[in-house]
Design a protein around this nucleic acid. Structure first.
Lengths: 190, 190, 190, 190
DNA sequence: CATGAATGAGATTTCATTCAT
DNA sequence: TATGAATGAAATCTCATTCAT
């Protein structure tokens, strides 16, 4: 029973990903989310209290699967540098898979409502900490310069991840050379 | 007369920056833009044909002033590295000044309407080319490794700029050490 | 269900007949149509896509019932002359019943929208053909002069129908002598 | 001075005929009437108190020229039958010349406002009386059957005039055989 | 006299949410 | 539990009219 409810919620969230992905939060209609999930409009409200809540939970759902995927993709790599390359590759795949929703909402703070912001910030922070951990591992490893400001370095690496979006925007490409980018960050461009 | 009309348009745009900044495109009301500009609702429509058009022109206005400010801030710097530091500083100041609007719309592609996207992409491209030019200058200078992929390097630098937002999100700070960041990019973190 | 929806549409159309009848298309408000039908404003839009569509369907509805009534009223008459008298009588009754809407829109081409015109023209044509058929029957019958131009005669008879409106305008009367008019048309006024 | 004012009013009215002709009363904009007349929007209000008044005066203006033209066209004809033929011809020309405005407003009672109705009715009545006079002349002449109800006959003849519009609607023609129609009315169709 | 910038009442339409079935 | 018909607040945009210049 509990599981049935949970299962149904996931179905709605996955439908919401498509709808919000295509139209964004404001233009994505609850009715379409329902139809798209194969249920009636009213039924959606048996599982969520409002459109905003659907959106919020959808975001949480995606973040969880992002964090999970990120951890998984880096887990098997030996060096920290390899881990970052793997992270970038994963990010690239994730972004391509969910490009629409992401473009609409995942990595930004649309003022959909003040109440959603803290959640997003919190999740961003978790990703940041994940990167920070890797940097610290690199310092212990000797892969990363120990004199460097760990937070600053993490931000630089996170930026790199964001840079992928720039790449996608500026030139329509279908793959990235993650290793090249990470190498630049490690060796410097000078 | 031409000037008066132009002046009034700017007033409305500046009011729009505040309103869209606070509420975003969808929740920002035309009536409030008007009131906020000290004029009547109908008057706004004497200068712009639609809410979308106000938004579009506001974006253009901001981008122009961004590009202009970016050029100005880098102009007097001797080395390319200094230019980038200056650019980061400028970006930081700009973002702080207009943080609201930017968060709402400046650096992202809300699906406000398909028709606005190309404009934004185009402006992003202009910024990219501005950075690319600096990278090339750095290569000629000897400041940047000539064997490096110029486009990749530019993206990395642009990413860095974007990274400032991460910094702002993760920890509430009121200044950044631009030089430190740029040094990291140039020297590498390893 | 299908029937319920259909029934509700008819209710709205009948409400629209009253509202458009009283105020015409432009001044007739959707909200009033709704209130007048005992439903909410939004509900109307569950059944029709726009005010224009309500109007269009209302016209179609009236035309159909007009044509139907016209056929019915003439059906039992033996001679063509009697048929025309019956048609005039029916027309008079119909016009009195729906005088407001008719005056507003039924027999004219207000430039409500170019898209409605062809519909109206088409329906006028159907009425014309109905009259034309009767004229031809009269020719076969010997009631109508076989040397006469059938189309012209039909137009003259149709005109007569329109003439009823003149009668209503010029002098406030509550009945017409259809037979007298038709006799005039058949025998001539000289 | 008086004349100048009068002259200017006529200019505005003629501009209004074009604008209302193209768009109808509700969609015809005062600003366009002004521009079309080569003057400023505000200036229109120096000559007319409201849009409605412009429309009203435009109607009066057209009716006057209609009545005048009708009288003129029939004046030189000897027989009453010829007079009617001439009247029909004139009507056809007038309608073709001003078809747009007429279709929009001249021969109907759009409920633009209750206050305009009586004017239109009154003008219709004048036309009716003009026809009635001709019928009486015909009776004196011996051209029209003296036993006939004069009012009824007038209405029939007026109807005929209206019938021209039917002709225009049903088949796109660019001339009418007025004599044929009038002959039908005089001789009967049986 | 002439103007046109400014105004705001008012109308259409959308869509999240409710609730009777 | 599931539904979808009904709702009405709320937002955009139009345009006749005013009035300071």
């Amino acid at each position: 029973m509990r599981d049935l409810k949970e299962q149904r919620k996931v179905e709605i969230i996955e439908s919401a990903m498509q709808v919000f992905g295509e139209y964004g939060f404001h233009k994505g209609k609850v009715e379409e989310i329902a139809t798209n999930a194969g249920i009636g409009k009213g039924t959606v409200y048996e599982y969520f209290n409002s459109k905003k809540e659907i959106f919020q939970e959808m975001l949480r759902y995606m973040f969880e699967s992002y964090i999970e995927g990120a951890k998984e993709s880096t887990f098997h790599q030996k060096t920290v540098r390899d881990k970052f390359v793997a992270l970038l590759d994963f990010h690239w795949r994730f972004v391509n898979l969910h490009s629409d929703v992401i473009e609409q909402s995942f990595f930004r703070f649309e003022n959909i409502s003040e109440s959603i912001r803290p959640h997003i910030i919190n999740m961003h922070r978790r990703i940041f900490e994940f990167v920070l951990d890797m940097v610290e591992e690199g310092i212990k490893n000797g892969e990363v310069n120990p004199h460097i400001d760990r937070e600053m370095a993490s931000i630089l690496l996170l930026s790199t991840i964001g840079g992928i979006n720039i790449k996608r925007t500026i030139s329509e490409v279908d793959s990235i050379d993650s290793r090249y980018i990470i190498d630049m960050v490690f060796e410097g461009i000078s």
